[in-house]
Design a protein around this nucleic acid. Structure first.
Lengths: 148, 148
DNA sequence: CAATATCGTTCACAGCTCGAATGATTCAGG
DNA sequence: CCTGAATCATTCGAGCTGTGAACGATATTG
């Protein structure tokens, strides 16, 4: 396209902005849920459990894009917090089904509140149409990349 | 707003989508620049050097939001690739000014091409208005969070 | 009833990033 | 001038994350 790729060529890129802003947003969200004893990945796991009914940990691993061993660690910590309980699947006793407890649901709503607060902080100074456009654009992009 | 925070409440959040999509995009970008011997942070440093004229490494650290010691490591590796040269600032001989070499500029354009390819991959199946809306929304969000 | 595959789990390890300590240089004040 | 404090780049040790290779238990296939 352009012979002399100008200064801001990389910065104008979608992936550049997604990467930097994603890291920034995740850091701020991490600060907020830290007092709950959680990290962003814990929140992601809680959300995944709340979304689908009950999946195997392997499914969860691929859905979250992490190694199965990490699911084990996350589930361990969530179990210590009383947010999750492990139940052997009677149909297949190899499987440990992860169930959200009431405490887990409570924690998830706390996470959602933290996320919404972070959203407000990030989009401070935005007009409402701007905010809507951003949310909508990201949601459509997300829908194109959920492993369904 | 909602009494029983439904399933997709957290997933509908801005910070959730930014975080997951940012990580996804960064991973794909990392795959592409790996063969150049670079990681995303190297590309970020190259872009920062190309943008402003010549900043101190401390400035670069705060601009990229990382520790000064990390700038040293990144600069070391870029120097080994011949992409950057260190020059003592005559005005203040404590400062090591980082200069982009022609090879550095060449690498930067390669990174930009990789980023654009990743963009195309991410937005495959998008209409042109959709792509434009996404780019524009992210750019405005980014402008609100650059430390200027 | 084997042989093989799959599930969750454990464990050792590599990679990334930070923070404190260090030496060199500059600056402020008397 | 000269001395003490501040600032720069750098080195080094340590913490935290996440992965991949084992392993035991269970399921499935022929």
């Amino acid at each position: 396209m352009s012979d002399v790729k100008g200064a801001a060529a990389l910065r104008a890129t979608l992936v550049y902005n997604l990467g930097t802003l994603g890291a920034l947003a995740s850091d701020r969200f991490a600060d907020r849920v830290e007092e709950l004893g959680l990290k962003p990945k814990h929140a992601g796991l809680l959300a995944a459990l709340d979304a689908g009914p009950t999946a195997s940990q392997q499914e969860l691993a691929t859905r979250l894009g992490v190694a199965p061993s990490l699911i084990v660690a996350l589930a361990d910590q969530l179990q210590e917090l009383g947010a999750v309980e492990r139940v052997r699947d009677p149909q297949d006793r190899r499987r440990q089904v992860l169930n959200l407890t009431p405490e887990g649901r409570r924690l998830l709503t706390r996470c959602t509140e933290a996320a919404e607060a972070t959203d407000a902080e990030l989009t401070a100074g935005f007009t409402e149409p701007q905010r809507a456009a951003l949310t909508h654009a990201l949601r459509t992009l997300g829908e194109h990349h959920t492993p369904n």
